[in-house]
Amino acid sequence: MSLIIDNLTVKLYTNFKKKEFFNVADSVSFSIQNGEIISVVGESGSGKSFLGLSLMRLNPPYISEISSGSILISDTDGFEKIDIVKLKENQLSDVRGRLISMIFQDPNVSLNPVIKIGDQIIEAILAHKKMKKKDASDVAIHYLELMRIDGKARFNSYPHELSGGMRQRVMIAMAMVLEPVVLVADEPTTALDVKTSLQVLALIEKMRFEKNVSVLFITHDLSIARNISDKTIVFYAGQIMEYGTTEDIINSPLHPYSISLTKSVPALSKDYAPRERLFVIPGSLSQSDFKSEKCRFYNRCFKRSKDCLNEIPLLKLSSERFARCVNIQ
């Protein structure tokens, strides 16, 4: 186990003075093994990006805080065990990058436009290791080449000289350069083209095999989750709605929300006749859903009944399958 998240609850204040808040992540618990890819799927606004940020304690200060739970991260040898929640602010920079690192959604914004990409990668190495600058640049070039970028030629280029796919690959190189245990990928392919996004996915997969990194892959595209991940978490309004192996979730979803999600994608399989109207989840996700005492999907659910009016725990169906619904046979 490289990452164990237990009962993680993150508060987001809507009004700090009056102490009004809601939980963007509500008692989330799961664990990732070494070399495993877990994807988190859900609509935008369901709090999945916030979950990714909280794992690195990058959640915005003052308006949000981790109120309970633990994020236990351990070395590949099991030699070092750290609870990220308990770390102080000045200890965090030691963990970020070395044990856990992140790829952000938009590569156009997440690179510094006035610093050469080589220098940006070296900065991460030199912050953690005592190394000569020349050795560090060799490491950086090696990682750029792993990412299929001509390292020596591109080392001195600025971000604007690269295409979107290359920038995202530089981001992955930057995240992987210290060989972290866990990689959080927050929609790394949404801003990219079909073919380049495939390549980025393939390189993440390659890192998993070669460097044995565990990946938390946040996405809203079920077909990406289907192809890349071993397990899938269906996330809605700050709660895990369903959790299981990806194959089970895509082929036989149990929770009404997962069923609706899989239905609303015009798949290449011939589920839909041409021009047949697609399935639409009625309504939209609102902030009040995060606070509701009922099942959080109650207002939009097609299976709702009287039993749904109470808070529903995450039910264990089998050793690897959990769902938060009472109407499952």
Partner: peptide, 28 residues
């Protein structure tokens, strides 16, 4: 190539696309 690159609902070996970049870089 376009048709193959769709991640449809079928298991697919993603790793084969890793080399797509090698060509792309030189012929950008």
């Amino acid at each position: 190539v376009l048709l193959e690159s769709i991640l449809a609902y079928g298991p697919k070996n993603i790793l084969q696309f890793a080399d797509a970049g090698n060509i792309n870089i030189n012929n950008i």
